[in-house]
């Protein structure tokens, strides 16, 4: 072996780790840039009126995004009302009947649904709900988001309940507590933080979704509280404003982006807090 080859090997080793460090940090440069631009352009727009007023017609100064904030919250509430009961009970089922044929197929289905592009979920919500009801609606948008949340909730519920020790179930059953009560009052409370984490993750996943809302919730320049009518949402508003030719709308879109990013990051942060506890 030549002595020089060791030196060459060490140089190669050093070069490689430098490359790893460089590429790792290069990949978060876009994140910093995005946050920088959103904060810089967004903060200039955000004030009390922006958060509490309706959009003004083109050409008028000011105006806010309250209809989109309310709409986003409405959509999330509808999505949770649909997906949480179904998702949690299906997660319980998977944990209870681990090796059954149905459980295996449901697990497979959850994986597949997880991977369905969100735009396709929009098409499905359109044909299943918008067409029968005859109108774009908050309901159809909420259902589309619910379909996207379901796999997240099911998986985290199953994973959490798997970690609840079997001895707790035995302790409860040995007291003569019925199976259903054991699940509801002993097993679920023991895994509650994990289940909540799953729901929050689901909300974080759909809060910024636009594609499934394009032809379901559709967007609405006015305030709407009726779940059977079109409703605006922050991502929809950003899409419309950002692709418009008007300068004023662009700055409103930056403001809305800041609100949306803060909301999504807050969800992720809360999720982390709950998990750590």
């Amino acid at each position: 072996m030549k002595a020089s080859s060791t030196g060459y090997r060490i140089i190669k080793d050093k070069l490689f780790i430098s490359g790893v460090v460089l590429f790792s940090f290069l990949s978060i440069v876009p994140l910093l840039l995005i946050l920088f631009y959103i904060i810089k352009n967004g903060i200039a727009v955000i004030n009390w009126d922006f958060l509490t007023q309706l959009p003004r017609p083109m050409g008028e100064e000011g105006g806010g995004i309250i209809n989109a904030i309310v709409g986003t919250l409405m959509l999330i509430v509808i999505a949770c009302l649909v997906s949480v009961p179904v998702g949690v009970t299906a997660g319980i089922y998977l944990n209870e009947y681990r090796t059954g044929k149905i459980a295996e197929s449901v697990r497979m289905a959850v994986e597949v649904i997880m991977g369905i592009p969100s735009i396709i979920i929009g098409i499905i919500a359109y044909t299943w709900i918008v067409i029968p009801l005859g109108s774009f609606s908050a309901l159809s948008g909420g259902v589309a988001l619910a379909i996207m949340m379901l796999p997240v909730i099911i998986k985290s519920t199953e994973e959490t309940l798997k970690l609840v020790p079997n001895t707790l179930r035995e302790a409860s059953l040995a007291l003569g507590v019925p199976y259903s009560t054991t699940i509801i009052k002993v097993i679920i409370p023991a895994g509650l933080s994990g289940i909540i984490t799953g729901i929050l993750l689901g909300v974080a996943r759909v809060a910024g979704e636009t594609a499934p809302l394009l032809f379901t919730a559709f967007g609405n320049p006015f305030m709407n509280y009726n779940i059977l009518e079109p409703v605006n949402s922050l991502p929809l508003l950003i899409f419309v404003y950002a692709t418009s030719p008007y300068q004023e709308w662009h700055s409103l879109a930056w403001g809305a982006s800041l609100v949306l990013v803060v909301f999504v990051l807050l969800m992720n942060f809360i999720t982390k807090l709950v998990t750590r506890r």
Binding site: Y37, I238, L265
Partner: peptide, 12 residues
């Protein structure tokens, strides 16, 4: 990076 909504990437 994974949590930032798609629409924000597009807008940016």
């Amino acid at each position: 990076l994974a949590g930032i909504p798609s629409i924000i990437y597009g807008f940016w």
